[in-house]
Design a protein around this nucleic acid. Structure first.
Lengths: 158, 158, 158, 158
DNA sequence: GATGAATGAGGCTTCATTCAT
DNA sequence: GATGAATGAAGCCTCATTCAT
């Protein structure tokens, strides 16, 4: 299917990727980095609440722009398929955000809870929204995004 | 594989499930109902904050007891494979919880945000925790569970 | 399927037939004998042309009454599946008819052509009619039966 | 089995045929067209009786040359397995012959009987011969072919 | 004698991968 | 470097048959 969509021969794919697993991992990394890079680009010298706003809305924007990429990332977020390099990318992307959250913690802006937990809650809740929308259990419009942003800020802010 | 693990002949599986898809769906429903039933059993005449406590800790307890079941539920939460009956089970399980959250909203206990969104945030954030732990990005111990419980109550409470 | 239609357990079938092949052969013999017996019962002290009339119309009547039996007989007329006993039945049923045709030959009523050939032509042409009707290439009504009867009498008569 | 006989891998078959059913149908069409084409090639500007001779002997020749093909065609002449395209081929092949028979009817050469019936009788009787020979009830040599040809011409000629 | 759950060989099919061109 | 035909292991499933009850 990949070869067909790429308009190349089936064998050609193997000149660029060792195996299907390698291709999936490369794609995973590509989009994880795209997402991470996009979110990173939104950061800057803003007050915490505004940074959180930019971050949450950024995830919303990215999901709107690349819904298939988000679905792909979620579908393959399961450990079995990801190789070491993909996990390394995962960590590398989280690093600057973790640094930021840690700083906030020192400044008593967010709760005194391990930053990994706060980050897992925030990202997880956003994904929860996405998945509920995929199952058509709800629809995520701008109002929903704003309301949930407020909720999750309350979740982490001191 | 299923037949082998069950120590029965390959054909025997088909006396109990029409197809692989039917088996996966039956398993999905079984565990979704187990989780839903367990959480439901924890509800009762308690103050909201305590109910939320029981709910959040209940998910923790269930995940500790049946880690494979939770992983299975997450792996198959993706719409493509679930049949109508499984989706119906999904909705049926959410109903009583939604009713509860709606009541809380009338009583001004939780934020004035569509209950579906609040539920998606809470469940999603818990799954976010689980998945981060699967990828060994963090470890969920009792302290983590308590801390995140507090966070998510803040997220939804008025 | 056979057990189900017979409203008995699957294993019960094997108390009456050694195998599927044995059952099919028994069924084949049963209906071959039914057809043969029916046609034989129509014979009697009639002039040749009338006997042929009774024979041809008899096949029509039998096919009308037991269309599934005829389809079954045709479907399994292929040597691979028939066992020795079934072939013996086949021969036994043809015997009296062959005797009749041979007598007709001596009396110069039918062509001076080996009786097996004449019989194969007549039976084959009737089956050809049936099969064309199964493929909806034509419809066999009484007029068609009468017309073809006349044709095939011409085919064999001296 | 097909792959094995063709000395290719199992999957290779599926590069040429979508499914077993498609393969059987393709084979059916191939040989039906071979038979039809061969018979058609024998027609020409000959008197009716000679055309019939060429046709009947043509079927004999074809059956002698490709006995397995004839057996295959007969075994699968049963509607359940043939797809629309195969049936279309069936009809297309019969068309020119029907046209010929219809012309003969106008010229009062063959009996005033629907041409479909005459064709079914002729083809059916030939198949009857074949099948009797497959069951070793008789042997079809040249003399038999000649004798039956004469019979069946009588069957249809005016 | 009847049952029907259990069996497993075998059938059809897919798809990730290879390799000769 | 590109191709795509060929591959065959493995997957899902059926069904004729067995056998403990």
């Amino acid at each position: 299917l990949v070869a067909e969509r790429a308009r190349v021969g089936a064998g050609t794919v193997y000149r660029y990727f060792e195996s299907k697993e390698a291709l999936v991992n490369a794609l995973y990394r590509k989009w994880k980095q795209a997402l991470g890079g996009y979110l990173f680009s939104l950061l800057g010298d803003f007050p915490p609440r505004e940074l959180f706003h930019r971050y949450w809305q950024g995830m919303g924007e990215f999901s709107r722009r690349y819904p298939k990429a988000m679905a792909f990332l979620e579908l393959h977020h399961h450990g079995d398929y990801l190789d070491d390099e993909s996990r390394a990318v995962e960590r590398r992307i989280l690093e600057p955000i973790k640094a930021l959250v840690d700083r906030w913690q020192e400044q008593q802006i967010v709760k005194n809870v391990p930053s990994e937990l706060l980050m897992a809650l925030v990202y997880g809740s956003f994904v929860g929204l996405l998945r509920a929308s995929w199952l058509t259990l709800l629809h995520v419009d701008q109002a929903a995004l704003d309301a949930t942003e407020a909720c999750m800020w309350e979740a982490i802010r001191r």
